[in-house]
Write a protein that binds this DNA or RNA. Structure first.
Length: 142
DNA sequence: GCCAACGTTGGC
DNA sequence: GCCAACGTTGGC
């Protein structure tokens, strides 16, 4: 089982909305590295859900419910483009958000792609990094 | 194959 | 709204 972090601008698609809808298609990814990460996801892989632009924090946990398939949102005039989507379902909200600021100052999370490769929208997280996020979410804010 | 120009992401 | 960082495109 692998761990990942996915980003979304809450104005576009928030974790709250995922909780309400119960499932969503993670599509529209137009970056090769991110796409390749989507394709490596297995059913049941855990995803940290990060709010970019507004919030700047990891707010919840989701998981992969359907592995990569051809992204139906590919523009009509670009059907030769080879993009992928996965389906995700919510697991639970974190007890409190774990902020980017905290991740930057944390010895484990400062090594994560969230800090080191901030523009990548679908990132691999190590088990240790994933567990560190959960641990921080249990504690009181720094 | 290099690199300048351009577009996008995302923090501030 | 600005801009740094990064990815992509296209001319040579």
């Amino acid at each position: 089982m692998k761990h990942w972090l996915i980003k979304s601008e809450p104005f576009v698609y928030s974790f709250d909305r995922l909780l309400v809808e119960g499932s969503t298609r993670w599509d529209g990814i137009r970056n090769y590295q991110a796409r390749n990460n989507l394709r490596e996801m297995k059913k049941g892989d855990l995803l940290l859900f990060y709010h970019s632009n507004e919030g700047l924090a990891i707010v919840g946990i989701a998981k992969v419910s359907k592995t990569a398939y051809a992204d139906p949102s590919v523009e009509a005039d670009a059907k030769q483009k080879d993009w992928s989507a996965v389906d995700v379902v919510p697991v639970r909200r974190l007890k409190r958000p774990v902020t980017l600021k905290e991740a930057r100052t944390d010895p484990i999370l400062s090594e994560s792609a969230l800090v080191k490769n901030s523009r990548l929208s679908v990132q691999p997280f190590t088990k240790a990094q994933y567990e560190r996020v959960l641990e921080l979410a249990k504690s009181t804010p720094a």
